[in-house]
């Protein structure tokens, strides 16, 4: 055998369907050699060290951070709102970096804390979807523990780092969503103590990202930026579907009350809400109280989202109740219960 023989046969380009070219009797066939080596390795594997997997995945995330984001038309419907909020929040980065690092923007939280919080909860969503969760995204299985962990790590030490880590992870979530497509959205995954469809997890992340982007826009003196109407509808729909559970888990009793919730404005709609579930009404046309309904609650869709996000109070959010006022109040109170830290 000559060195030239080896060099010529060495590349993956030369691999055929069977994994090696057909060889004669001569034992100088390089592809046969690597196939044999591969099998020997399988028989007596030298296991890679445990940390190597994390290193490979960290390298991939770091490399992927420089790639363009997927386009909205590459994503399933439930993934689009998250992509849009990712882009909107990213666009605030330069203005945030120009402000004093210690300036409180939400209670005692600085912008860095808000980003560390978002990346911590996104990491819980990412883990539910099967994505790696590097150490800088915090540790712990609940929102508060993980947020505290992320804030005390490298992302909590600098806004630039927090933005970078958050964005790299958010981009990874968006790319994974594009890769699994519509069929992956129905997959049931564990998330924040419950089990949800992957698409709903993404809507939840879009919603919280919007809520905190609004916090940051307020500090920056920028006007509120409502999500696109289609996004408002999808996020509202998730909120409405969570109402019965929120109400009952807080010890509430709906007594078989059936309420119609009508959300007005772009992206609005109408839903039937009862103690055993909620569903969109096929016709969102003029709704009014009728016998059999406890109440009809009418409010603006963005106000509903702000109430669910803890940025409005049930007693002060503009709304109208037809029928039983107490039943209407139940719906508002349940909506407020959806708010998380």
């Amino acid at each position: 055998m000559t060195a030239d023989d080896i060099g010529a046969a060495e590349g993956p380009d030369n691999v055929d369907e069977t994994g090696a070219p057909s060889g004669g009797e001569a034992m100088d066939d390089n592809d046969a050699v690597w196939r044999l080596l591969s099998d020997l390795s399988e028989d007596d594997p030298v296991a890679p060290p445990v940390g190597l997997r994390a290193a490979v995945l960290a390298g991939a995330r770091s490399e992927g951070a420089n790639r363009p984001l997927p386009r909205a038309d590459q994503l399933p419907a439930a993934g689009v709102p998250y992509l849009r909020q990712l882009i909107e929040l990213s666009s605030l980065g330069p203005a945030l970096l120009a402000r004093p690092a210690q300036e409180p923007v939400l209670g005692e939280w600085t912008a860095t804390d808000v980003l560390a919080h978002l990346l911590a909860v996104d990491a819980l969503a990412g883990a539910a979807l099967g994505l790696p969760t590097p150490p800088e995204t915090g540790s712990g299985a609940d929102v508060l523990t993980r947020t505290a962990s992320a804030r005390s790590g490298p992302a909590g030490a600098s806004l630039r780092e927090a933005l970078a880590v958050w964005r790299a992870q958010a981009a990874a979530i968006a790319r994974h969503t594009a890769a699994v497509g519509e069929p992956g959205m129905a997959r049931q995954v564990p998330y924040l103590g419950t089990v949800m469809a992957a698409g709903d997890v993404l809507l939840d992340r879009a919603f919280e990202t919007w809520v905190h982007a609004e916090d940051l826009r307020t500090v920056l003196g920028r006007p509120a930026l409502d999500p696109a109407p289609g996004d408002v509808h999808l996020m509202s729909d998730l909120g409405v579907r969570m109402l019965p559970g929120a109400w009952l888990s807080a010890g509430g009793d709906l007594d078989d009350e059936l309420v119609h919730l009508v959300l007005t404005g772009p992206g609005g709609g109408a839903w039937r809400v009862g103690p055993r579930g909620a569903a969109a009404l096929p016709d969102a046309g003029p709704a009014g109280w009728r016998p059999g309904l406890a109440a009809v609650v009418v409010m603006d869709g963005i106000d509903f989202c702000r109430l669910a996000g803890g940025r409005a109070e049930p007693h002060s959010v503009p709304h109208r109740v037809e029928g039983d006022r107490a039943a209407g109040a139940h719906v508002l109170a349940a909506t407020a219960l959806l708010a998380r830290p």
């Binding site: 690597w34 399988e42 030298v46 790639r67 990874a172 594009a178 699994v180």
Partner: peptide, 23 residues
């Protein structure tokens, strides 16, 4: 499409073989 979950799956499936050949 840049799916890290797919990379993790490929690693889990093939890393032992790749590492053993390299070793």
């Amino acid at each position: 499409l840049g799916d890290e979950v797919a990379l993790a799956a490929a690693y889990d499936r093939f890393a032992t073989m790749v590492h053993a050949v390299a070793a």
